[in-house]
């Protein structure tokens, strides 16, 4: 009969051998791709902003953005942009996916800063790397009095999903400093709104997630400057 102690002993020995094996293996010479670095940056940034995400979760605010490597649900509407533009939007049952094409220009930089915020708001946390930037601003302790702004480089093949989980949003096309984007207004007051736009010259995508009005959100967006 095999006892749990016998299995534990065998498992410990096997685990030691496994570690010993991998410690003697030469590590792969590998430079992580910028796509991987971006995905990990986003993951680490989400980890760094637990308060905001907890607030979003508790408010059932489920319109969120993240880099994905593939889409797994059936498309029922693909809105192809004109050939000279460099992204398309696909509408899925529970998400809206943006796919990007083209390379970032050599002169592109992420040296942007938020130069206007509504009165009473202040910067709570920011996460700044060479390939992405994110910041949480808040007024007091109410999560509804806060906004998260993020921007990052995108490259060919990158996809960004706004996950709606079937919630309804009114979508309105908007222009921010001449660049086309979309404003997703939640029809439910408990859910936040999203403003999404792309600087196609520099291949930088921006999104702003908050409970503020379009007017305030657009003003914040227009005042993100170098």
């Amino acid at each position: 009969m095999i006892t749990d102690e016998m299995i534990a002993e065998a498992a410990a020995k096997y685990n030691d051998a496994l570690i010993q094996y991998w410690q003697n293996v030469e590590m792969e010479e590998h430079e992580f791709s910028s796509k991987f670095e971006r995905k990990m940056c986003r993951l680490i940034w989400k980890v760094k902003f637990p308060y905001m995400h907890k607030a979003l979760k508790s408010a059932a605010c489920i319109l969120i953005a993240f880099l994905i490597s593939f889409a797994s649900v059936m498309t029922f509407n693909v809105e192809a942009r004109a050939a000279f533009t460099r992204w398309i939007r696909e509408v899925y049952e529970d998400s809206i996916v943006y796919e990007f094409f083209g390379e970032k220009s050599e002169t592109a930089s992420l040296d942007y800063r938020v130069t206007w915020i509504p009165e009473g708001y202040e910067l709570v946390e920011e996460f700044d790397t060479e390939i992405s930037y994110a910041a949480l601003y808040q007024k007091g302790n109410d999560y509804k009095e806060g906004f998260v702004v993020e921007w990052s480089y995108v490259e060919s093949g990158d996809k960004i999903a706004l996950v709606t989980y079937g919630e309804e949003y009114q979508c309105e096309d908007i222009y921010i400093n001449g660049y086309r984007g979309s404003f997703y207004k939640s029809i439910n007051d408990n859910n936040s709104n999203i403003l999404f736009w792309v600087n196609e010259d520099e291949m930088v995508e921006y999104h702003l997630n908050s409970y503020l009005s379009l007017e305030d959100m657009a003003k914040i967006a227009e005042n993100i400057k170098k």
Binding site: M6, I7, E9, A10, A11, K13, Y14, D16, A17, L18, Q20, Y21, W22, V25
Partner: peptide, 14 residues
């Protein structure tokens, strides 16, 4: 991966 080294019978079975 071939962990081979120092595996006794019980760990080898696992």
């Amino acid at each position: 991966p071939n962990t081979e080294t120092n595996l006794d019978e019980s760990a080898g079975c696992l």
